[in-house]
Design a protein around this nucleic acid. Structure first.
Lengths: 143, 143
DNA sequence: TTCCTTGCAAAACTTTTGCATTAAA
DNA sequence: TTTAATGCAAAAGTTTTGCAAGGAA
């Protein structure tokens, strides 16, 4: 259960340690955001995250939320996804994995790495190397 | 060479026919946009397309450009890509293919289908089927 | 004190929309 | 004539920024 109480218990300790380990000063707002996102793997938009924080009673401004999400993403604590042009999605699972994207509902679902095998990949252009692979499998209703 | 003259020559005829074939009324603005995009495979943002049109001397408003790009995409004449959260990219190559995304420059490069082999793909969830696969290989400078 | 973080509001940017005008069939 | 497309400006949605105030070291 993700309530305000969660913040003061077990997960909060882990979050503080994780933030410190990343060189991020664990302020109250950052702990609330980290606690929300790192409690379980999830895909959320900034607006959804803000709504959850407010619902929990957290006092976090939009500016701080965006600052924090960008900071977390830069430090590898979360991952920003580009699945639609409208807005950014933040994935709290930073382990390698792929996504299903349901075109009707917009829902994102994880596809674990073992479910996909690349038996051939192109060589990266000279002077470059592969930094990551984003795979989005778009789903429509079966007719 | 992509100049205003191009519009009145060979490509314009093809464009008019292609638009009509898609049930799109071939107006002057749509022909200019189609002529620009369909002349060769390319990845462009709306703003880049507008700049090129204006540089050619075409009179196209921003509203009409977006209307037209969305219309073309809906009819399968072009494809909209989500590679970064900031803006939409339009790909005039609608044949199946994938992309390299150079993180340093933002450049997009095609990866042909034969360069990638999926030897395993997940089954789509019940009631759904795969509508498409978007693969973006992010590139960074090799160290 | 010194530096970093926060919040608010405003700005920036991309894309969409309302509506009067214009062009196409 | 009848319908659809265009352009302009304004609006909408998302994200960033400037700056004063607050908090941590």
């Amino acid at each position: 259960m993700m309530t305000a109480g969660t913040v003061a218990e077990g997960p909060a300790v882990d979050c503080g340690a994780r933030l410190s380990a990343c060189g991020i000063r664990p302020t109250a707002q950052r702990l609330r955001i980290a606690s929300l996102l790192l409690a379980a793997p999830q895909h959320r938009s900034a607006e959804q995250i803000l709504a959850s924080l407010r619902a929990e009673g957290a006092r976090v401004s939009k500016a701080t939320l965006y600052n924090t999400l960008n900071l977390f993403a830069a430090r590898g604590l979360i991952r920003q996804l580009s699945v639609d042009g409208a807005r950014a999605w933040f994935d709290s699972n930073v382990d390698p994995h792929y996504h299903f994207h349901d075109l009707a509902s917009g829902a994102l679902t994880d596809v674990p790495v073992p479910a996909v095998h690349f038996s051939r990949l192109p060589d990266p252009p000279p002077g470059t190397e592969i930094a990551g692979i984003d795979l989005v499998i778009r789903l429509r209703k079966k007719m």
